[in-house]
Design a protein around this nucleic acid. Structure first.
Lengths: 252, 252
DNA sequence: ATGCTCTGCGTACGTCATACGCTGTTCTGC
DNA sequence: GCAGAACAGCGTATGACGTACGCAGAGCAT
């Protein structure tokens, strides 16, 4: 398969600026970047549901249909918005930094990016990462694992595992926070309310393991659960990776 | 906070059958279960995008607005559909089964459930798990970790970590398969095409780690990547959990 | 019988994505 | 300079969608 056979999705070519403007017709009054920025502005202000083509067009002072000269469909716009909102990846692994703290920083940066633009989690993922910023994030993640003895595929799987975990965790906490804000209760109580709801549903019935869990966590402060949970999952993953790396260097 | 203060979302009460029918008016011609089953039938046949209120109503031979006597909004219906589609959790941990194979079975069952109903991944998650089947799955997952010395919160975090990983992986593979089917190419080539696309985009530019990865995986068979990736991530997580459990039992 | 409550549902409204085609602008080739 | 092609902006129109509202009739309590 030669390079010429490889076709890139239209949205991806747009994002990378690989579309040539033939310079034939009238000058364009907008740029893709401005359209995407307007979409992000709307999402930031009123949520992803408010991002309609007409609303974005209004933000730019153009007619709705004009946007379709820059984007082939709304889903394209959403993909471009999500990629742009991720922004710059975290700083690359420093010369004296181990792979583990570097990966921890990278994973936390994933969470921060989603929390900074909570609407990102509602953008349906359209496939494997190909956007410019997603690729840059991937590069930094892979670079953190250089020199560990891991095979290429294993390095990739590791950062996919971490970014997936970060996305899940960021989504869960953002959902809880939004539900709390919507019902005007303290964000710290949102987790506690979940425990109460779960306890109510499992009071009768075949749920011994859940009841055991609830009884146990009732002794402690359940509100601190979601603070330490991130670190717990992260440590488990990194411990597993570390075990593999150590096993590799021992046998080689 | 007493139990009376705890309010359940309407959709959750519906799913658990906690709504009392006062028996005053005319007999109902439908049940929530039948409405949900009709929605699932539509999703199974033509995808989640085809699930409109009018389409589901047509499937049942009733008018569109009749559905709103059983469901307060479309999002409620989607939540109920997703919960129902998960179905029964896997068999509980057997008496001679270790926590690790039991958890591996549980995680794989998550993947299978999503692959069996691929539209599940497009249903927006509306909060922490409270649906009847989700709670039953949680129960089985927690039960697999009994007697490991892990704290309650840690058991919960572990199964959240695993279910999140399973969902991510199932989503990624299902996306690739659907893209392949849409463009009439062999599913095995879908992964290979991604590598080519990535190589094309990173040929020039500051992507040394990605190029290193591509060069390395070009030697092997890149199509086997996605087969082994699931096992890799799963093993990393379980290794990390095992390290914690071993450390616990050593110090106690 | 009478009145109340709940069911099914017809109608209507506002919103949305986007297909189509027209008008006017700009560049290319002569 | 000029003809013609290619392209930009966008007005109009279409069909689908979620769902608010209110009405007619069914079944129960009195």
């Amino acid at each position: 398969m030669s390079d010429a056979d490889v076709e890139l999705p239209e949205g991806i070519e747009l994002a990378w600026g690989l579309r040539e403007r033939p310079g034939k017709g009238p000058r364009r009054s907008l740029t893709i970047r401005r359209v995407v920025a307007a979409g992000i502005r709307v999402a930031e202000a009123d949520g992803l549901a408010a991002v309609s083509m007409s609303r974005v067009a209004g933000e730019l002072g153009v007619a709705t249909m004009s946007l379709y000269r820059y984007v082939s469909a709304k889903s394209d716009l959403l993909d471009l918005m999500a990629d742009a909102a991720y922004g710059d990846p975290p700083a690359p692994r420093g010369p004296d930094e181990g792979w583990r703290p570097a990966l921890a920083r990278w994973a936390l940066a994933n969470v921060t990016a989603i929390h900074r633009h909570p609407w990102i989690r509602q953008v349906p993922i359209s496939g494997p990462p190909l956007g410019p910023n997603q690729v840059r994030w991937m590069e930094q993640g892979l670079a953190a694992l250089r020199g560990t003895g891991l095979r290429g595929i294993e390095r990739l799987s590791t950062i996919m595992l971490l970014s997936g975990y970060a996305r899940n965790w960021a989504t869960l906490t953002a959902d809880l926070d939004e539900a709390a804000a919507r019902e005007q209760i303290d964000p710290d109580d949102a987790g506690a309310r979940y425990w109460h709801q779960l306890a109510l549903l499992t009071r009768d019935g075949p749920y011994p393991a859940i009841r055991e869990l609830l009884a146990e966590s009732a002794e402690g402060r359940p509100d601190e659960v979601f603070d330490t949970e991130w670190q717990f999952g992260l440590d488990r993953i990194l411990d597993g990776v570390e075990a593999l790396i150590r096993g590799r260097s021992a046998t080689s």
